[in-house]
Write a protein that binds this DNA or RNA. Structure first.
Lengths: 243, 243
DNA sequence: AAGTCACGAATGTATAGACAACTATAGACA
DNA sequence: TGTCTATAGTTGTCTATACATTCGTGACTT
């Protein structure tokens, strides 16, 4: 029981969150050996298969390294994220060993979306849209402004999430069966609102990632991630097989 | 028993192979509904958890799409590349039907690189570096500033290229056997020099793509592509399933 | 005709238990 | 001293089972 968050996520997601937290807060430093699966089973009160799945998925994503017969170890932080799996800034910050804080600025259901939103969702008639605006801070410094518009018929209970947990963002990405994702990356000067929220000056350069997802023919989410240009870079590293 | 390969792989890997084979040989065409987990359990003689793991991993990789309560479906092959192969602005401009013009600003061999360049190339002793600076215009309007530093021992005759032809850029990207590529995308304000060359104001937002390539252990090229933020966006589109 | 509800079917998660495979280490033996 | 071996500890795989969640359908009701 101790250590696992209280939200409605699946258990293996909570375990992943628990591990990332321990990495982030320095409890388990780089190359540290994690408690064995058996230990985690005892201390967390879940079955071994659940722990195993959590550790395997974190290994697949590069956070851990496992050696059969020996143990599980914390991997050195990756230089950057890959482009496919961007947008989970929370895991990134935690894995880097920084302190993460999410500040929820807006959390609402828009009953009557304006013209632009309707177009973005390809609605023909006015229907509600869920809306969140969150500032993500790394060690107290704002890094990313995350604005999401969500189709509530496709993503139920979106507004009820715990937006301070890393697992939430992981979960959101896999909970809806996406059929299409579009990314658009641009550089734009900060608006007055963005500048205020990110603690930068107006017109300062921001890296903006627009992400639009579909489930079948209908638009599921329309997201805008605004990074502070002077504090963040998106990276991808490609290694050919031979090395 | 029937259908699973005979090698020493784990069962769930064999199930994955089995599914991929059926997709590959056209047995299960695009958007076809797969047999249910229960059916596969019967026909393959493995437990449901094993089938489930196989299907889940194939889903994560984009080969399948699953809908709870409905079934599992074959996804169309991935239509699109990721961001790896951007940066050939010339083809892009031409494909858009616009007029392209390349303006060579600098073309030189630097015999004695400064400290920063040496670090970028991980040189331990001073060695020459080829250098080009080119402005790309779409219909007469500057869009991209392309600055390349090239290791002349790996890329021969770099300075002799025809930098106004689209094919040149295609060629440069594939002429050297790269073993590693690193992309870093950031948003930074235009410097005085960049502003002048791109016909924008100083401090205007630019999208900067840094690209560094290795051939074996040695650095081959260090490139910086600076896009005018208000005139350009990088895009990637990922298609997965039924549409 | 339209809405509601119950049910079946399919996937999602979780558990307990078993065995296999691998590694490091300590102890036995030459 | 050096080598081999047994063993404990850890991760990897697999099964059987149970319950949860979601979706579509068809029967029933209104």
């Amino acid at each position: 029981m101790p250590g696992l968050s209280n939200t409605a996520l699946p258990l293996y997601e909570k375990v992943k969150d628990f591990v990332l937290d321990n990495i982030g807060n320095g409890n388990w430093p780089q190359n540290e050996k994690l408690p064995s699966e058996h230990d985690l089973v005892s201390s967390l009160g879940v079955s071994r298969m659940t722990v195993h799945r959590a550790l395997r998925e974190l290994t697949d994503k590069g956070y851990l390294r496992r050696v059969q017969g020996v143990g599980t170890f914390v991997s050195p932080p990756r230089a950057q994220s890959t482009l496919i799996e961007i947008s989970n800034i929370v895991s990134e910050i935690k894995a880097r060993g920084s302190r993460h804080r999410a500040e929820v600025v807006i959390l609402e259901r828009i009953e009557r979306p304006d013209e632009m939103l309707l177009r973005a969702f390809e609605y023909t008639e006015p229907r509600p849209v869920d809306h969140s605006l969150i500032v993500h801070c790394e060690n107290g410094v704002p890094v990313q402004l995350e604005e999401r518009y969500v189709n509530p018929t496709l993503v139920k209970h979106y507004l009820d999430q715990d937006f301070t947990s890393a697992a939430t963002y992981d979960y959101l990405q896999h909970s809806t069966p996406l059929t299409e994702v579009e990314h658009l990356i641009s550089a734009i000067p900060a608006t007055e609102r963005d500048a205020k929220l990110l603690h930068i000056r107006e017109r300062d350069s921001c890296l903006v990632l627009n992400r639009k997802t579909w489930t079948g023919p209908t638009v599921a989410t329309v997201n805008t991630f605004t990074y502070v240009g002077s504090r963040y870079a998106l990276g991808s590293r490609y290694l050919s097989p031979a090395r």
